[in-house]
Amino acid sequence: MTDARIDRLVERIAPDPGPGLTPLARELLDEITSTPPVAARSSRWRPRLVWSRGIWSGGVRPRPAGVAGAIAVLLAATAWLGSAPASAALDIEREGDQYVVTVKDMFAEPAMYERELRIRGLKIELRVVPVSASMVGEVLVLDGTPTLSGVTRIKAPGECRHPFSFCSIGLRIPVKYRKQVAVFLGRPTRLGERYGLMTPIDVPGEPLHCVDYVNKTVADVEPMLRARGLKATFTAYGVKGPVPRDWYVYDGVLTAPGEVLMAVNRVPNPTPRPKNAFCPDSR
């Protein structure tokens, strides 16, 4: 048996990776950083993180505050670098001393993206993640520089309506860029696939956006979800089986097309997320 075959078998028994970056993950970040860090020497390097919406999501869609948003790719150019195969995963052009890259085939294997970038000497790790419709085309970039000198975003024409979004449609990478870059790209799900990155149920474009559901009871929220064609799983710490219907809903995430996971508790959330966090107009 070859090493590759052994590896493939082990790969196939990999347990499920879990729900990814959920709203609770964001809360954990806040909880950890609410304690003072140990005094430290200055950092030599600080990655720049960019959450942006991409061109595949259709109209201008605001992004959730901070993180909960996911992902897209486009990387950067005008002088063509040579002929790309017809089935190229990426459209890479050269514009002066920069590459402009756009994704052509979101279902291409990440290895194919990486190969095309590596040919140009770019060390970019690409992860393609199935996401909900509103998150398709989102991009997360970690470019490895302390300044804004690494990977830069290309802003979509027109006004970007959301204060947390750059409304990027692409990235520019200097031709001589040699730092390691990590890019996460959100793609549509295939039939039967679950989301690789959880989307809060109330961000723009998702079913409960601007809907008043936090701290309502399970009995109240259930029909709201049913009316939207969503199959809901309610979960509470330490509760096996069905969650009491008079408990309170804290938050929820989309786990797969048409499926949501709702976190509930015996008592109402004393510090619910401000309503205008995802719904600026508080409609």
């Binding site: 499920d16 879990g18 729900p19 679950r194 799983t233 979960t235 996971l261 976190a263």
Partner: peptide, 17 residues
């Protein structure tokens, strides 16, 4: 919060294929 995260992971596992 960590307890809630544990509950969410349990819920995720139950709903996973």
């Amino acid at each position: 919060l960590v307890e809630r995260m544990g509950a969410q992971l349990a819920g995720w596992a139950e709903s996973a294929a």
